[in-house]
Nucleic acid binder design. Structure first.
Length: 577
RNA sequence: GCCCCGAUAGCUCAGCUGGAUAGAGCAGUCGCCUUCUAAGCGACGGGUCACAGGUUCGAAUCCUGUUCGGGGCGCCA
């Protein structure tokens, strides 16, 4: 709808410029939906922006444009010049009405576009190491990342969802030690540390307790899931693992169990990754050495203090960074650079990294290092999201992975379900903090929940079809109703809202901001629910056959948009609630 | 000390990349509703867009500075 008008407007603009002897490029006018409804359906400020270039008064330019545009081939009902030089357009009603049939016909395809066809995008998200259950922060990232993928798919991109994880290194050693300690404790061969020690390992840590050694590491993982894994090992092996190295079966079993748990959680939210990329493979396949060699060839590597450094100051960053410790072990940075080098080598056109605010510091080093290696760093995008805080009883719940005082996604899902979880997590802009109200989440009485409000709008739309069937009225096909019957202000308002959908998706996809979809769906439901409710002003099922068919056609179009919109967020569109 | 985010109604947050009179949900007050589905509908009240400058026809939006809040600044990941 808007595109058609934009095309006409651009043409008229081009003619106007040519007439004035201006042969420079014709700018694309900004065409927006005014806040004030009485300013029309669309407005443009193009006359004002061209005032200087044409050395004419904005209002004169506007007038010339309006003359030239005419009714834009029947599209326009009126064009008014207002204020300092805005042009306000009002579209002919049948232009809106006819759109309903198009929407109904396009069905699942409505809103999709082809702008991204031929573009391979990799989206990396979650990427939690297998040391414990996913937390709410991971949950936000999972939902955000997946919604971005869905938006990209809806705009034609070829998307790879990727999860990068590390199952080696110090973290995992500590994990193995933690499990082994619990194992020994359960066999009566070790003592658990005191609460005081766990609360303050620096000062209160004991080597022995109650005549037994304390095996638990002072920086160990304290969650109950560790004890559960240990208990399983006691059941299976009894005392056979007492002398086993913590990094062998203890670590491996823990990793397997935790990964299974993570995958189960992701599955419950409806997220499936295409690739689980193991950092270890970078070591095994010599990718770290390859990256180092490439960097060294560019003189970006130097040795100092027994360690190997990245000369990041040479590309303008504030300090150099260690990439290989004096112990010979790489830091996190090196595999990360090597990983991104691989991403480019795998042929992605765009690389989207979804990360929490705590990882932001790393990003400039990775980007500039890959640029130094000859890749186009601007193809790597960072989508950063702020933390999730959970409030309960008016107080913030303290969260710590190590102490396992965090709220897991599974716990939330048990109480509120995947749909509500997704809606809450994606509703806010990524770089705003997300305040998850646990009390509201736990409240079984979801009277004001926007998730249900939107789903309900869809279900009612479907209910209408059932009701019609009971009355012996058949639902019209996409082209089998006369949309010009729909002349009520509220009906036209709904159509106008539905018309925004395709461009909204394109914009949300381009900016990687799925929260726009959530807000939009609330708007649509906020128009549709009241319309449906007000059975006195306008019955949908009435004695007027043509009108009934038209209104059922409207319900079809609404249903299409709600369903497609919910799908973009990974939320179900129930036909009944 | 430096870097990144945020600051908009009592609360939680949008604000289409610089437009016209500032938006929603919740909470509050007042009405309506035995309904084409039940968590529904309408109205009202509520604002110095943190503060101070600047850029221009025009700023919640862009720039600079300040204040407050969150995160980060390791041979941790």
């Amino acid at each position: 709808m808007r595109e058609q008008l934009l095309e006409r407007l651009t043409t008229a603009l081009g003619e106007l410029l040519q007439e004035a002897g201006d042969t420079d490029a014709v700018p694309t006018p900004v065409l927006e939906i005014p806040r004030q409804a009485d300013h029309g359906d669309f407005a443009t400020n193009v006359a004002m922006t061209l005032a200087k270039r044409l050395r004419r008064k904005p209002r004169d330019i506007a007038e010339a444009l309006v003359d030239r545009l005419g009714d834009a081939g029947g599209l326009l009902k009126s064009s008014d010049i207002a204020g300092p030089g805005f042009i306000n357009f009002r579209l002919a009603e049948n232009a809106w009405q006819n759109l309903l049939c198009d929407i109904a016909e396009a069905a699942d395809g409505y809103g999709r576009s082809e702008g991204g066809v031929g573009s391979k995008v990799q989206v990396e998200f979650v990427s939690a190491n297998p040391t414990g259950p996913l937390s709410t922060g991971h949950g936000r990232q999972a939902v955000l990342g997946d919604a971005i993928c869905r938006l990209l798919e809806a705009t034609g991109h070829e998307v790879t969802r990727e999860y990068y994880f590390n199952n080696g290194g110090r973290q995992m050693r500590v994990l193995g030690q933690s499990v082994k300690a619990r194992y020994l404790e359960q066999l009566g061969r070790a003592s658990a540390p005191s609460d005081a020690a766990l609360a303050d390992p620096e000062n209160a840590w004991e080597e022995t307790r109650d005549g037994l050694p304390v095996a638990f590491p002072s920086d160990g993982y304290q969650g109950d899931y560790i004890a559960d894994i240990a208990a399983a090992l006691v059941d299976e092996f009894a005392e056979a693992l007492v002398d086993e190295d913590p990094s062998d079966r203890f670590r491996e079993r823990a990793q397997a169990a935790i990964f299974e748990d993570i995958r189960g959680t992701l599955d419950r939210i409806g997220i499936a990754f295409d690739v689980y990329y193991n950092e270890q493979s970078l070591y095994d396949e010599g990718k770290l050495e390859a990256a180092i060699e490439d960097l060294r060839a560019k003189d970006l590597i130097f040795d100092a203090d027994g360690a190997v450094w990245l000369r990041s100051t040479s590309f303008g960053l504030d300090r150099d960074r260690v990439v290989i410790k004096s112990s010979g072990e790489p830091t996190y940075l090196l595999p990360d650079i090597a990983y991104h080098r691989e991403k480019f080598r795998r042929g992605f056109d765009t690389i989207v990294d979804v990360q929490g605010a705590d990882h932001i510091e790393q990003f400039p080093f990775v980007r500039t290092a890959t640029e130094a290696l000859g890749f186009d760093g601007s193809k790597i995008e960072l989508v950063m999201h702020q933390f999730v805080t959970v409030t309960s009883g008016g107080e913030q719940v303290k969260q710590s992975t190590r102490k396992a005082t965090f709220i897991t996604i599974d716990e939330l899902l048990d109480q509120i379900g995947a749909d509500v979880f997704r809606f809450f997590m994606v509703e806010r802009k990524a770089d705003s903090h997300l305040d998850f109200d646990l009390d509201l989440a736990r409240d079984k009485n979801w009277r004001k929940n926007p998730t249900y409000y939107v789903q309900y709008a869809h279900a009612r739309s479907c209910g209408l079809a059932r009701k019609a069937a009971e009355a012996g009225v058949a639902m019209p096909g996409p082209r089998d109703f006369d949309p010009s019957q729909l002349v009520l202000e509220e009906e036209i308002a709904i159509v106008k809202k539905l018309a925004e959908f395709p461009e909204l998706i394109a914009r949300a996809a381009a900016s990687r901001e799925p929260h726009h979809i959530a807000y939009y769906l609330r708007d649509v439901a906020g128009l549709w629910n009241p319309y449906l409710q007000d059975g006195k002003a306008h019955r949908i099922l009435s004695d007027d056959e043509a009108l009934t068919q038209a209104r059922l056609g409207l319900s079809l179009a609404v249903r299409v948009v709600l369903k497609n919109g919910l799908a973009l967020l990974g939320i179900s569109a129930p036909e009944q609630m």
